[in-house]
Amino acid sequence: MEAFLHQVFSGLANGAIYASLALALVMIYQSTHHINFAQGELAMFSTYLAWAMINAGLPYWAAFGLTVVASFFIGLIIERAIVRRVADAPVLTVVVVFIALLVILNSVTGWIFTYTIKVFPSPFPEEPLFGPYISSHEAGVVGVSIFVLVTLFLFFRFTPLGLAMRATAENAVSSRLAGIRTGWMLALGWGIAAAIGAIAGMMVAPIVYLDPNMMSGILLYAIAAALMGGIDSPLGAVIGGLTVGVLENIMGAYVVGTELKLTVALVVIIGVLIFKPTGLFGRSFVTRV
């Protein structure tokens, strides 16, 4: 029983990691209707920025704040400089651009920072505050994911800017006619996604160690989480992430064995796509012909 509880809480902690990256994926999807395969590598790159700042002597929270802001602008610039140019291209072109971004960011980071793993500090205390099953940092990650989720919800629900972004995603033409600068709304979406990714990266790194391939495995699970919850639903992404995390641990430890853990995640993706293509919390759109 003790081991079972341990597996569940460890799964929740992993799930919170998947959820935080899934939130960034949802963010981009909401504003551009694309799945950004480079999201994980962007987050990893941001985490290296934070690591460099902390190593240069900045206090943790200063580095944290600066990294989030810097990542926002990096996302913005990538949208303006690269993604925008292929906005009207076929979807495969966009996918190729995203994969190219993934490879470039991975190699450039490795080239600058080398591939040896680095220790990234946690802002949470070392001793476990929430019982023996979950470390303070893991609990902190769950808390941060929920905080980001609530912030996003409030932003989209109650601010005019959030409304304008939602409008742009739903119907770009009408939004432009209503006076919204739709191009900038897309860039803003990229910026916010990159900022969320940076937070995810800084939460993940203390657990898995910082290295250029830190996010490659996590991205797979994050995509599974986002699809499961509904790719356009932030709440769905968080619930999807936690579910995938716990499911993966329980299945791996007690049912299918560790060799098929990843397979479980992939089966989840396929299952959801077959039986509920919009995800558990996704809305289905009806398009009038």
Partner: peptide, 20 residues
């Protein structure tokens, strides 16, 4: 015996099982 894949983000779950 527990295995992991290089793509696994963490091996926490395996360690818990092995200890158990």
């Amino acid at each position: 015996e527990a295995s992991y894949e290089v793509t696994d983000p963490t091996i926490d779950s395996q360690i818990i099982s092995l200890r158990a």
